[in-house]
Each structure stands twice: as C-alpha cells, then as structure tokens.
Amino acid sequence: MNRWRQALRSRLAIVGLILVAVWVLFALLAPWIAPYPPNEIQMQDKLLPPSAAHWFGTDNFGRDIFSRILYGARVTVWTGMVSVGIACLIGIPLGAAAGYFGGRIGNLIMRVMDTLLAFPSLILAMALAASIGPGLLGALLAVGIVAIPEFARLVYGQTVVIKEKEFIEASRALGVRDKAILFRHVLPNAFAPLLVQITLGLGSAVLTTSSLSFLGLGVRPPTSEWGAMISYGRDYIISGEWWMTVFPGIAIATVIFGFFLLGDGLRDAFDPHGRTRRVTRRIKRFSTHTHTGSGQSL
C-alpha cells in the first residue's frame, strides 16, 4: 500500500484527514461530550456571548451553540454519507453501462446526465428538495441526485478509456462475460479517481445540504444543523450576536476544507504527474459555488 503512505506524506492531506477525523469523532461522541442537550431551551440564558459556561455562546432560545454544533456534525456526516452513497449507487452503474456498452442507450444516459449537469447544482437541489418536500430526507435525496451526473460522467470517461485496453480484450478472449469484465476489470481500474471524487463529493454534499437547510429546505427545527443555525443567526448579525453565525460557519468551512484537502492528497498520491496547486484553485471555485453552484465540477 505504497500509495497510501505517499498520500499521508503530503502534509496538507494529513491536515485534511485530521479535520475530517475530528468531525467524525465529534459526531460519534456528541452525546457524551456535549455539555448541554442540543434542544434544551433556557430562555433566561438567551443570546449569551461565548463564556466558560457556554463556549460558543447561546442562541436566541438559550440553546448552547457548542452542543448544537456537535450534534449538527451527526447530521452533516450522515447527510454526506447517504447522499454520496445515493450518487455512487446510481451514478457509477449508469456511467459504467453507458461507457462500456455505448450505443443509443449509453448516449441517452449521458445526455440526461449532461442536462442535469447544465443546471447550477444548488438551484437543481432546491428544485428537487422543494418537490420532494422539505425535511432531511428530501434534502438527502436532492443532494444525492444532484451528484449523480458527476459520478456517472467520471465513470463513463474512465470506462471508455479502460475498455479499449488490451487486458479487457484478453479477458474477452478468455470467455469472460461482459458484466463480469465490467465489475471485475473495468471498475477496479477506475477506483483511484472514484475515491478522489467520493472525498470531494462529500465536501460538496455537506455544503449543498447546509445551503438547503439555510434556505429552509433541509432539516426541520429544532434539529440542529449548521446551515439552519446560520439561518437563525442571520437576524442577529446586525445586533452584534456574531457567535450564532460564526461558529456554525467555521464548522462548515473546516469540514469542507478537510474533505477537499484529503481529496487533493489522494489525487496526488494516485497521480504523481499532477502535483499542482489544486487546493487554491478549488477554494476559488468553492467561493463561487454558493452563487452559481456550478463551481464544484472537477
């Protein structure tokens, strides 16, 4: 497993790995490390600034923001995994089938994917979430569906290249059936770029879910979710209660930053030729993501 070692050697990737690992740990251990129940309303403690009792302060209902962020990490980890899982489960077979068998159906699949890609992802996610109905499930499905074309496109491209390789012909010459060739020979060869895409996709999924929640299309109150927390805090920025928005904002930023660093590190590990400064480029795109939503394509 030389490549893994190589990935870990890259310091930025380690920072990314630590960021992601810390948040996953927080999510897992939230019930034990959170100082307060996340939804406990204490009206007498409302809008307290950060202090020893409330590290990140309290919100307009007197809920402890630190505890809510820890519990919010559970929602975040969950949404990331489920939505990327949906995208993989549908996108990978579609792209692989389209790439391997080609023909009219393959063409049709990829044109549908292109159509989906043409929409800014946040707008598409909003439309989907709104039509599925607000709530976490709707948001998960929406984010997952939006990510399908990216996986399909990646796997399609990989499959088209790999299926022309001689070892594919060699397996056909051994009498292996197409389905087995696809799963046993084509997809394993596309694993490296897929892993990178999954990592980066997790970051994007977190962002889109938070954006949906911010817009009121994600989780329902009182579930603590970072995007929703920023949305509640929005009205209090002017009156000076900055902690309601800043801390969830930092949480979102660090998770996404962590996934992007990790994804870049993995990509460099698997592709020794392309050690460019992709992180900076990605951050630039990332900043345009919330406006156009299309900045996250790779």
Binding site: K165, E166, F167, E169, A170, S171, A173, H185, P188, N189
Partner: peptide
C-alpha cells in the same frame, strides 16, 4: 496478445 505490458490487468 502482442503487448504483454498492457494485456494484464494492472
């Protein structure tokens, strides 16, 4: 096949 370098799955 001709190319033993590419005829095995890497």
């Amino acid at each position: 096949f001709q190319e033993p370098m590419t005829a095995l799955n890497p």
